[in-house]
Simulated scan of single mutants.
Amino acid sequence: MSCGGLVVLGVITLPGVRESVANARLFLRDMLPVGLPALDDLVSVGSETVCNAIAHTASGHGGQVTVGLLVGEGLYRLEVADDGAGGRRPYVKAEDGTESGRGMRVVEALSERWGFRADGDRTVVWAEFRIGNSSGNSDRGLSPACPTLVPTACEEEKR
Rank of each mutant, 00 (worst) to 15 (best):
S47H: 11
V107E: 06
V107S: 00
C146N: 03
E157R: 12
V8C: 12
R77W: 04
D83V: 00
A127H: 04
A85I: 06
L69D: 09
E128D: 15
S47I: 04
R29W: 07
T13P: 14
D82K: 09
M31G: 05
P90Q: 13
R102Q: 08
V80S: 09
R29M: 11
F27V: 12
P15F: 07
R130Q: 13
A24Q: 10
A81L: 14
D40T: 09
C154K: 11
F116L: 01
R113P: 05
R29C: 01
L42D: 03
L36A: 09
G141A: 01
D83I: 00
E79M: 12
M104L: 10
Y91P: 07
L6D: 11
A38R: 12
R117M: 11
G16H: 08
E19R: 15
P15N: 06
R25W: 00
V8T: 15
G46I: 01
R122P: 00
N52F: 09
E19Y: 01
G141N: 13
R25N: 08
L75Y: 08
S134P: 04
G5M: 03
V50M: 08
A53V: 13
G86R: 05
L149R: 14
L69S: 02
L110Y: 07
N133W: 13
K93P: 01
S134D: 00
A94N: 04
G84S: 03
M1P: 04
V106I: 13
G97P: 08
D82C: 12
T123A: 09
G62Q: 00
I54L: 02
V45G: 12
N137E: 11
A127K: 04
W114T: 04
E108L: 02
T57Y: 00
A81P: 00
C51V: 00
G10I: 06
R130W: 03
V17I: 15
G141V: 00
V45K: 11
S100Q: 01
T57H: 14
V71R: 07
F27H: 05
I131N: 07
G84T: 02
T57W: 06
D82M: 13
R89C: 07
G84N: 02
V71T: 15
A53K: 04
H61I: 13
T98W: 07
V11S: 13
R77K: 14
T66W: 02
F116P: 01
P15H: 07
L142A: 12
A81I: 09
T123Y: 02
W114I: 02
E112V: 10
P15M: 05
G84Y: 02
I54A: 05
P15W: 05
M104R: 00
L70F: 07
L14H: 10
I54K: 11
G103N: 03
R18G: 02
A145R: 10
A22W: 01
P90L: 09
G4T: 07
S134N: 14
R117S: 05
R105P: 04
S111L: 06
D119A: 12
L149V: 15
T152P: 03
